[in-house]
């Protein structure tokens, strides 16, 4: 144990979770909001739509907040490094909100032109959330202690798991850019949806690599 009280490191984890994810969400919601302001200037009745699209990149911040609360109030007895790992995982993966903001902004633009595309734009805009969900997943697995006394989930190695899924979660930014392009393509030709999805899901491969390595670390099979 590094400190007498495991919550001292836990607080750092909570801070990282809510801080970094909040940063990501803020930037993402800002990008989407800028586009929303433009749309509303043209047509004030689109306010509701703008709010919905701006809400998408805010979920990452919520996940960060959730994990912070979980660390500080619920899983107070989790291993201290698991707390830091969980914070890093949720926080860094929350930066995918930037990509989601880019996608939402494109989605909002497309819906402003043609309401019928709402569902499709929504599906594309929600793609870059996968990374954040993986981050949240690893955080929960660490905090709950799913892997028992595995060295990978209780020692400083847990930080490695958090870093793996967290940094790989930055692929969400790339995914957001692809998704934004795919929304544009789908708006022009609705048949492009299927192929656009395939392209937009590509950057997710790396998030999955990150998740895999994180799970392998937590399992601790290398020790």
């Amino acid at each position: 144990m590094v400190f007498d009280n495991p919550l001292l490191l836990g607080a750092i984890g909570a801070g990282l979770a809510v801080g970094i994810a909040g940063f990501g969400s803020g930037v993402g919601a800002g990008i989407a909001g800028a586009s929303g302001a433009g749309v509303i200037a043209e047509d004030p009745s689109k306010f509701g739509t703008a709010i919905v699209f701006q809400a998408l990149p805010q979920t990452q911040g919520l996940y960060g907040f959730l994990v912070a609360i979980l660390i500080l109030f619920v899983f107070k007895n989790a291993p201290e490094w698991a707390m830091v790992g969980a914070g890093v995982a949720t926080g860094l993966a929350g930066l995918s909100a930037i990509g989601q903001g880019i996608a939402s902004s494109a989605g909002l633009g497309a819906v402003a032109e043609d309401e019928k595309i709402f569902g499709k734009a929504m599906v594309f805009s929600v793609l870059p959330e996968t990374q954040a969900i993986y981050g949240l997943l690893v955080a929960i697995l660490l905090l709950v202690g799913v892997f028992g006394n595995s060295l990978g989930a209780t020692t400083i190695a847990a930080l490695g798991a958090g870093l793996a899924v967290g940094f790989a979660g930055l692929s969400g930014i790339g995914q957001g850019i692809t998704a934004a392009g795919a929304i544009g393509a789908t708006a022009r030709d609705p048949d492009a949806m299927g192929k656009g999805l395939v392209l937009a899901v590509m950057p997710e491969t790396f998030a999955i690599f990150g998740l895999l390595i994180a799970i392998l670390i937590m399992l601790g099979i290398m020790f």
Binding site: L62, F65, T130, L137
Partner: peptide
């Protein structure tokens, strides 16, 4: 094969979202 693995792992979001609802309600 990693693509296929990715498809399978993608379903892990079921757990993550399930936890997110319950967790946020708890918060």
């Amino acid at each position: 094969i990693t693509g296929f693995l990715g498809n399978v792992l993608s379903y892990a979001r079921l757990l993550a979202l399930c936890l997110a609802t319950g967790g946020l309600a708890m918060a």
